[in-house]
């Protein structure tokens, strides 16, 4: 019983993390049809930004909440700048090329940004555990839960809810849906697709940085954290169906719970259970759980 409960809570926390890193990726793919490898860099930049912010607030004598807000604000600001520079400076020259070629463009940028991180923050690793300690623990029966983890799930739920509301009930969200559905028709009706692309990419970048920022206190912020995140986020997004926010949500829940179950029951398979789940889903649903079948074009 305790194991089942532990699997459930661990799974939820892991799913929250996966959703936060996957949602930006799936948004960018849904609108722009770009599988963005640079997402790992956004995550890493967010995490480093958060670590810097935690460093600032740990030295100053600020209340914990202010420190946490500074952490998120700094990471999102970095995401905003980075996203804007990349989309306007590099990516727009690759529009219209093969999907796979655009993936390689983002891969090249990812390689470059890995070294840029090392140039800015150096090669040593940073700890940013203070917010995690400040949040404290809560005991439910025999199980000890970190309040920070509960907050993480809450943030993921908030992002999911906000995203859903923004897509369905705001003017920009409706325009986005139109562009996703048919880019050319949308352009013919006077929607400025270029602006939609830029805004979407920047929002995706900010979401990636947010994912890095909230995870920073839980991990050791060091070089190479972006590499692992990309493949993980890809696996989640492909499981749910590329370009679908609901897909990212369900995908991260499935993958998160499966991984937690593996960690508690069969630790040997922990490293690849995520990819096994993804491969299994793709066998039965070749384009993920939440993608509608496309008519074949002759």
């Amino acid at each position: 019983m305790l194991t089942a409960f532990a699997i459930l809570t661990d799974g939820l926390v892991y799913a929250a993390y996966l959703f936060l890193v996957a949602v930006g990726l799936t948004l960018i793919f849904g609108v722009m049809k770009i599988l963005n490898v640079t997402h790992g860099s956004f995550y890493a930049f967010g995490a480093y930004g958060a670590a810097t912010a935690v460093g600032i607030y740990a030295n100053a004598d600020w209340p914990d909440a202010a420190g946490f807000l500074l952490m998120i604000a700094l990471a999102m600001a970095i995401g905003l700048m980075l996203g804007l520079v990349l989309e306007r400076g590099i990516l727009r020259f690759a529009y219209g090329r093969d999907e796979v070629v655009v993936v390689l463009v983002t891969y090249a940028v990812f390689l470059m940004l890995e070294d840029v991180i090392a140039l800015i923050w150096g090669r040593e690793s940073y700890g940013a555990y203070q917010p995690m300690v400040a949040a404290g623990n809560i005991e439910i029966g025999d199980l000890v839960l970190s309040n920070y983890d509960i907050g993480l799930v809450a943030i993921a739920a908030l992002v999911a809810g906000l995203g859903y509301w923004a897509l369905k009930h705001t003017r920009y969200g409706r325009l986005l849906t139109v562009v996703i559905f048919d880019r050319e028709t949308a352009a013919a009706f006077g929607i400025n697709v270029k602006v939609v692309y830029t805004v979407t990419f920047v929002i995706g970048a900010m979401l990636g940085a947010l994912g890095g920022a909230v995870m920073a206190p839980k991990i050791s912020v060091t070089l190479g954290i972006g590499v692992e995140v990309i493949v993980l986020a890809f696996a989640v997004v492909v499981t749910g169906g590329l370009g679908s926010i609901e897909g990212a949500l369900i995908g991260s829940l499935i993958v998160g719970l499966c991984r937690a179950a593996a960690v508690h029951l069969v630790p040997q398979i922990e490293l690849f259970v995520i990819y096994a789940v993804m491969a299994l889903v793709l066998v039965f649903r070749p384009y993920g759980l939440f993608t509608q079948a496309q008519p074949r074009k002759i």
């Binding site: 599988l35 999907e99 796979v100 493949v231 490293l271 690849f272 990819y275 491969a279 793709l282």
Partner: peptide, 19 residues
């Protein structure tokens, strides 16, 4: 599979071997 899905599925398989 084709395109991105081909790329990602082959990636998943190599990561299983890695694991």
């Amino acid at each position: 599979y084709r395109d991105i899905f081909f790329a990602m599925l082959s990636l998943a398989m190599s990561m299983i071997l890695y694991g």
